[in-house]
């Protein structure tokens, strides 16, 4: 068994996707994106300033005008990266946060589109992040488009999806095709297992590599500084992580 936790690989992958960004915004209840952004900030410490805004957090928040200011600053081009989940995500990177079935009287209602119908258009690097990777989430076509993966050429769209990270693998998104390409599979997964869990078609190389684990220095940073920082905003997630780390060090 590996001595790196699956969530540590996800967080490291998020940090890698955030390379070069100056300001990352993270929605509420998103501990892994927040941890990935904190890791990016720690890795870049002496080279650049990486700002992190977490909605609803007092500690990690530069705003004096609430969510209104988050969207304003995104519109001004001051937010480089953002994360979106989705009850359904399809092969064109359309995202559905509203519900399953025929709108408006849907069979299953999710909270709603939040700011996705705007941020997906204006934030240059949107990372789709959803741990559950099953055919009911990764569908061929979403039932409701909260935010579309691509737009017609005349539509103002400096932003959009660049990647989809799940509990099984990492995809990149090509907006010219449009479609996803499987870039890597996480430990224990394969092209076949991912194909089985995915409701949409995607491209891939003949041989798909495994998602890289963090090197020793990154892992050390992750388990010390990042974990400590994360604890302020996400105490339950941090405690869970520490418990898993303690279990790792106990020989079976």
């Amino acid at each position: 068994m590996s001595n790196v936790l699956p969530r540590e690989i996800l967080i490291t992958t998020i940090a890698r996707l955030l390379e070069g960004v100056r300001h990352v915004a993270v929605g509420a209840s998103s501990p892994m994106p927040a941890a990935g952004a904190m890791l990016r900030r720690a890795l870049d410490e002496n080279e650049r300033t990486v700002r992190l805004s977490i909605l609803g957090s007092v500690e990690h928040n530069f705003f004096t005008n609430g969510s209104c200011e988050l969207f304003d600053s995104a519109g001004q081009g001051r937010i480089d990266a953002f994360f979106l989940g989705g009850g359904q995500i399809d092969g064109q990177a359309n995202v559905n946060l509203v519900g399953v079935g025929d709108y408006p009287q849907v069979k299953v209602r999710w909270p709603g589109s939040f700011g996705s119908a705007y941020l997906y258009f204006v934030v240059p690097k949107v990372i789709l992040f959803r741990e559950e990777h099953t055919p009911r989430v990764m569908v061929e076509k979403v039932d409701f488009v909260s935010a579309p993966g691509v737009s017609d050429p005349e539509v103002y769209r400096p932003g959009g999806p660049v990647a989809l990270l799940t509990g099984k693998g990492l995809f990149s998104f090509d907006k010219t095709r449009p479609g996803f390409t499987l870039e890597s599979t996480h430990e224990g997964e394969s092209l076949a297992s991912i194909r089985e869990a995915t409701g949409f078609a995607f491209e891939h190389a003949d041989s798909v590599p495994e998602t890289p684990a963090p090197d020793a220095a990154t892992l050390e940073l992750l388990r010390t500084r990042v974990l400590d920082e994360l604890e302020e905003t996400y105490p339950a997630f941090a405690a869970d992580w520490r418990r898993d780390l303690a279990a790792l060090s106990v020989p079976a």
Binding site: S67, A117, F121
Partner: peptide, 29 residues
């Protein structure tokens, strides 16, 4: 979508009939 609610209130704040907003085109919203 969140910024549309803010935009509608800000339009009313200004006594304007509407406010233009980016995004949204192509959504089921």
């Amino acid at each position: 979508t969140c910024p549309a609610v803010h935009a509608g209130l800000i339009a009313a704040q200004k006594g304007s009939p509407f406010l233009p907003l980016r995004g949204l085109i192509g959504t089921d919203v």
